[in-house]
Amino acid sequence: MSCRALNAAIESGHLVDVPVDSIAADTLGARHASAMALEWAGGAAVHSVLVRDNAALTGYQLTLDSTEAPWRKNH
């Protein structure tokens, strides 16, 4: 699991660079989290969870297929 910028920052307590090598590399992958994201994560009950690529793809597909998705509503 190599797309874990915020997770790594939460674990270390400061911003760190991480390698990006997963299916998310071309869309969601970041070498490091933003200072604001780390600050918000530290001020809330945040539990960082890492998932494997196939689970991320499944979640992504379920979100796109959701009939409740805002982009599916007629305006």
Rank of each mutant, 00 (worst) to 15 (best):
M1F: 12
M1N: 09
S2E: 12
S2G: 15
S2Y: 14
C3I: 09
C3M: 07
R4M: 14
R4C: 11
A5T: 01
L6R: 00
L6F: 00
N7Q: 10
A8M: 02
A8L: 03
A9H: 05
E11Y: 03
E11I: 00
S12T: 08
S12W: 00
G13K: 08
H14N: 09
H14F: 07
L15H: 01
L15F: 01
V16Y: 01
V16N: 04
V16C: 03
V16E: 04
D17L: 02
P19Q: 07
P19N: 04
P19C: 05
P19S: 10
V20K: 02
D21C: 04
D21G: 01
D21F: 01
D21W: 00
S22A: 03
S22Y: 00
A24E: 01
A24W: 05
A25G: 05
A25M: 07
A25W: 01
A25H: 06
A25K: 10
D26N: 10
D26F: 08
D26H: 09
T27K: 13
T27R: 12
L28D: 11
L28Q: 11
L28M: 11
L28F: 15
L28G: 08
A30Q: 07
R31F: 00
R31P: 01
H32K: 09
H32F: 05
H32M: 05
A33Y: 07
A33W: 05
S34C: 05
S34K: 04
A35V: 06
A35S: 10
A35R: 08
M36L: 13
M36V: 10
A37P: 02
L38Q: 04
L38W: 03
E39N: 13
E39S: 15
W40K: 14
G42E: 04
G42V: 02
G43I: 05
G43L: 14
G43E: 14
A44E: 09
A45P: 10
A45F: 13
V46M: 07
V46D: 01
H47N: 09
S48M: 08
V49W: 07
L50R: 01
L50I: 00
L50K: 00
V51H: 06
V51M: 10
V51C: 11
R52W: 04
R52D: 12
R52P: 12
R52N: 14
R52S: 12
D53W: 02
D53G: 06
A55F: 09
A55Q: 14
A55K: 13
A55E: 15
L57G: 15
L57V: 14
T58Q: 15
T58G: 13
T58N: 11
Y60V: 12
Q61K: 13
Q61R: 15
Q61S: 14
Q61P: 02
L62P: 03
L62K: 14
T63N: 15
T63E: 14
L64K: 11
L64Y: 06
L64F: 04
D65L: 08
T67P: 07
T67N: 09
E68G: 08
A69N: 09
A69I: 02
P70V: 08
P70Q: 07
W71D: 10
W71C: 11
W71M: 13
R72T: 04
K73G: 06
N74Y: 09
N74P: 09
H75W: 11
H75F: 12
H75E: 11
H75R: 15
